[in-house]
Computed example of a mutant assay.
Amino acid sequence: MLDVFKTYYRTVHNFLKYQNQKAFELFIEENLYEIFDNHDNWNGGIDYFTIELKVSVEQYLQIKGDDENIIIEDITDAFNNALKSNESLVINKIIIVPYDDATVYTPTTEPIWGLDYFRLFISHISENKVSAKNLKVCLEKWGIHGFVAHEDIEPSKEWSSILTDALFSMNALCAILVKRFRYSSWCDQEVGIALGQNKLCIPIKKDIIPYGFLGRYQMIKADGLDASHVAQKVAECVFKDERTHGIYCNSLAKLLINSKTSEKALQWIDVINSFPTIERVYAELIYKEYSHNPILLQPDVLQGINSLLKRYNMSTSLFIFGDHETSAEDLPF
């Protein structure tokens, strides 16, 4: 637990809220441990520490690699900013440790995103709200929750606070570009926040081409397309971009694993199969967890999972015989 650094926790946590949403969610006080490294008598005395952050195994597997390094860098930067007025304390390093008893972050407010869905903020002007709403509906079929302010914020809620939470917890942003979009200070700020966080931005051209920094991104030409086809192109962009690919693949795997109906399970299998192969780690996640959900053991769903896993030279331990399944140990000879 924190002792020396306890008074700095809130400041560091607030820095992370605006720097790195994933780091913000992982940075829970109960999971932080300070380790004294050494003392230096120079300049009145300096104490050096290592900060250990414990996360669940599932969380660790999600961030392992480049994301882990970025999170460590952002936490280190947040500590350095918080400690500017105290030169007697120095963080040597931050380490992230997988630990299954770690406390998992749960929002203190009502969730604004669908559980396990990829999070896409849909930036649009009010006159274009029908297009935004229709896109939101079609994106759901691809495992993407499109946040549309007038649809997702209840009238009684403090809308600017929820809007801010959505912008700093999104995985990506798409902008529906019509003639008056560039004159909306709200839309420009939404895009600016996304660009500032280095989030994937997807310009959707209805009337105008992308402008400014938004012009760096490959646009989707919506001319003559219905909402369903635009949603498909958005999903393809999310799958291809290196910043969102892993998040999206993990979301699809979790949606399948946690399916509440066989129809939904088959839907997620179809979505996964519609893309080029996902990394083996996500197939292994499905393989590891599928048997815990009775929905996934239904014959038609199990057949779909077996077909999916065969692409990765894996198969479930259950096989279909007529209208029932049997374990590999009970196969007739």
Rank of each mutant, 00 (worst) to 15 (best):
Y33A: 06
S251M: 15
R243D: 00
I35L: 01
I112E: 11
A149M: 02
V104C: 02
I125E: 15
G44H: 05
G45L: 11
M1Y: 04
E140P: 00
I125C: 15
A328L: 11
A265H: 07
Y217V: 03
Y287T: 06
L266A: 05
D207C: 08
L2P: 05
V301A: 06
E58A: 07
S126A: 14
Q59N: 15
F15H: 15
A78M: 06
E284W: 10
I122W: 08
K141H: 11
W113I: 11
I176T: 12
K221H: 05
Q298N: 13
L2V: 04
L167A: 14
S88Q: 08
F147K: 02
W159M: 06
Q59C: 05
A265C: 05
Y105A: 01
L256R: 11
F319L: 08
Y9N: 07
P294N: 10
G146I: 06
G44D: 14
M1T: 10
K136P: 03
I278A: 01
L177D: 03
F24C: 05
V178M: 15
F333K: 05
I28C: 00
L163Q: 11
K199P: 01
H229M: 04
G45Q: 12
D330E: 15
T326S: 00
F36V: 04
V238Y: 07
K17C: 02
F181T: 13
K84I: 04
P111I: 06
N134T: 09
Q267C: 06
F275P: 15
G114T: 07
I162S: 00
S274M: 12
W142E: 02
L255P: 07
D101T: 12
W42F: 10
C237G: 01
W186A: 01
I193Q: 07
S259T: 10
A194F: 05
I162A: 00
E263G: 13
V234E: 10
L252W: 14
N38P: 00
P98R: 03
Y33M: 05
A23M: 03
S315P: 02
I176P: 07
T7M: 01
I257K: 09
I269A: 05
L255I: 02
I35E: 09
H292L: 06
T76R: 09
S56H: 14
Q197S: 01
M219A: 07
L252T: 14
I204V: 12
T316I: 03
C201E: 06
I122K: 01
N14R: 03
S85N: 10
H245W: 12
Y312N: 01
D207M: 02
S251V: 14
K64E: 11
A23C: 02
R10H: 11
D188E: 13
I204S: 01
W142R: 04
L296P: 08
N293S: 09
S85H: 12
Y33V: 06
M219L: 13
N198C: 04
D152T: 02
N20Y: 03
K264R: 07
S262H: 12
K260D: 13
T11V: 10
N171M: 04
I75V: 13
K133Q: 08
T164I: 10
E110I: 08
K310L: 09
G146C: 02
I91V: 12
N128K: 07
K240I: 13
L302D: 11
N134Y: 08
N306R: 08
L297Y: 15
Q189I: 09
N198Q: 14
L89R: 13
